[in-house]
């Protein structure tokens, strides 16, 4: 199949992208690497009149440090993320989870920002961004605004990015000393989406867990923070991980589909959270 016709606009700056979006509004779709969008266009599940290609906007690519944060350009490809020294050093969880995204060819084209803005709850990176308290920098005609991950993912394939806005970069707090992390992805074949995924980052101190952040993939219409688990892990000894992980499904609304009914997903969330946190805690 071939996509339906659309007008193609290549933006060379954020301003150009924002201007194009302001002009076309709802009828426009932003394209980053196109690895989610192009298959949707081909299957004619999406009919934008205008595609605004931001893939070559230089100011949206690359990774830099900004004090206690890493700033990851939205157009940084998955491949670049995996191999980026700053990300590996300060936010290794992102690199680890990104290695599980799709396959090498898709990772050459697909971008970090594109995956977040697509906001598929089965995607691996939204839960990671959520667990790491990332902040999304969004540009629109009124200037830039920053939205915390918690307020970014609104619903299935829906984010706080408005039709005339574009996600420019993502600010991620660096994980400092004492942090361990793990992304546990459960899927049936290499290419398939996560049935459930768990992103865990844990800071140990004096043999106990001082702080834990846990994000869940595919346990609702948005990525979910397992706050019950985090709360139970706060100050807990390593022996209590299992007990804390039992709260992983609290407050989730897991989907039922071909790969698992909700009760099975809830069970998986508990098992995988235990495994992810245990690995992150280095025990």
């Amino acid at each position: 199949m071939i996509p339906a016709q659309f007008d193609y606009v290549r933006a060379s700056s954020v301003d150009e992208a924002v201007a194009a979006l302001a002009e076309h509004g709802d009828e426009a779709k932003v394209m980053a690497g196109g690895q989610s969008l192009i298959p949707l266009l081909r299957l004619r599940l999406s009919y934008p009149e205008v595609v605004v290609d931001v893939g070559r906007v230089a100011e949206m690519a690359g990774v830099r440090e900004d004090g206690a944060h890493l700033v990851i350009g939205a157009m940084t490809t998955h491949h670049e993320v995996i191999h980026n020294e700053l990300i590996r050093r300060h936010c290794g969880l992102i690199a680890e989870a990104t290695e599980t995204v799709a396959d090498p060819a898709v990772r050459h084209r697909g971008t970090f920002g594109g995956a977040l803005a697509h906001a598929d709850p089965a995607g691996d990176l939204p839960a990671v961004a959520l667990a790491l308290d990332a902040e999304m920098v969004i540009a629109g005609s009124g200037g830039r605004r920053t939205v915390p991950a918690e307020e970014f993912f609104l619903d299935y394939l829906q984010t706080a990015v408005q039709p005339d806005e574009v996600l420019v970069e993502v600010r991620v707090p660096k994980l400092g000393e004492g942090w361990g992390y793990r992304y546990e992805k459960f899927h049936r074949v290499a290419q398939s989406w996560a049935i459930v995924g768990v992103a865990a980052a844990v800071r140990r101190s004096n043999g106990t867990i001082a702080e834990a952040r846990v994000g869940l993939t595919n346990m609702g219409s948005t990525p979910v923070r397992a706050s019950g688990v985090e709360e139970a892990l706060n100050g807990a000894s390593l022996e209590r991980i299992g007990e804390a992980a039992d709260r992983a499904a609290e407050g989730t609304s897991a989907p039922s589909d071909l790969n698992g009914k909700a009760d099975y997903r809830e069970h998986l969330a508990r098992v995988l959270t235990r495994r992810a946190v245990t690995a992150a805690a280095g025990s």
């Binding site: 196109g34 690895q35 298959p39 060819a105």
Partner: peptide
Amino acid sequence: DTSNCGSCTVRMDGQSVKSCSV
């Protein structure tokens, strides 16, 4: 038509890409 099979893989500027998804 879903970028799964990889039959159409080519190299673009030295990196593999699925040419059905570019």
